[in-house]
Design a protein around this nucleic acid. Structure first.
Lengths: 159, 159
DNA sequence: TTAAAATTGACAGCATGCTGATTATCAGTA
DNA sequence: TACTGATAATCAGCATGCTGTCAATTTTAA
């Protein structure tokens, strides 16, 4: 199996590359400048107000050294607020701002559309199969990266 | 569809992240320090001796501003040689070195193994289906990124 | 209670990928 | 031939992601 085009890793990289481009295009069309990673972080914070950075990273499988920069940019855009936790002075807790909630509302349709575009080459049944296999493949090897996906378990809700 | 875990873009990013980690692990196990992108470039140069950087970029869907750095590192490792083309003084043509060919031979088994690990959560039939859908989905949206895949057409064979 | 271990966050440094600009060269045409 | 446009490569700058290290703080254990 020495044909590059038949290697899963090569095809996955390519699809990810296209997915990011599609995301940017759709999001820009509604007047925002946001990356897929920033969007995912925003969604998770809105679902878990008061979450700390490490727990957030686990929820989306980001490396802990990556999450800081992502949050930085969201704070700078005025979408998130960041404050030292009262319960653990090492931790910083995150909350949505009004601007952030507004942005999320306006972004969702664009992001949904981007998902459709990514899979536009597949019919309904194929897309469903593909998603199922993606899920299954990903779960089986979740622990193999430095930043595994972690369940929310103790996702916060306080300042 | 507002569940992040059901969004193709999110799952694709995750699988790509894992795929890279698996690749690194397998390649390191045989004593090399090489990225998936560097490996793909090496394979394509070995298949197309004397290729220029732009054509190489098209064969693997890299952005033209990314390929330079990738080639730089392969040249520095002694795996590739780079020289100004005699036919077009703008272009730089690439050739494998003996070291590069040796490395490729030793890397292939590790890379093959990495592909298996990536899809270890799927059985034979599922893996086959997944690859078919990956191919189909990718081809349909190939043109949507700045760096689309381009066929070899005029891949070179001279200095 | 004090020492060791774990945790949170940050930093430097490297490697993709992208946007946008610039330089050098080549090709086609007026 | 001289001008125009296209092309190959590079560069600056930004945003993921990673490795590895460090400081501050909390938790656990001796």
């Amino acid at each position: 199996m020495h044909d590059l085009d038949q290697m899963p890793g090569h095809l996955i990289r390519r699809l990810q590359q296209i997915a990011v481009a599609v995301f940017h295009a759709e999001v820009e069309a509604v007047g925002f400048d946001m990356t897929p990673v920033q969007f995912a972080a925003l969604v998770r914070v809105s679902e878990n107000p008061g979450i700390d950075q490490i727990t957030l990273a686990g929820l989306i499988a980001y490396d802990r050294t990556t999450i800081a920069g992502v949050v930085d940019r969201l704070v700078q855009k005025g979408f998130l607020s960041r404050a030292v936790s009262e319960k653990d002075r090492r931790a910083k807790v995150l909350h949505m701002t009004d601007t952030g909630n507004e942005a999320l509302t306006r972004l969702r349709p664009a992001v949904d559309k981007a998902q459709d575009v990514m899979l536009s080459g597949l019919d309904r049944q194929e897309a469903e199969d593909f998603m199922r296999l993606l899920h299954k493949a990903t779960e089986a090897v979740n622990g193999l990266s430095r930043a595994p996906l972690r369940s929310a378990s103790k996702a916060a809700e306080k300042t």
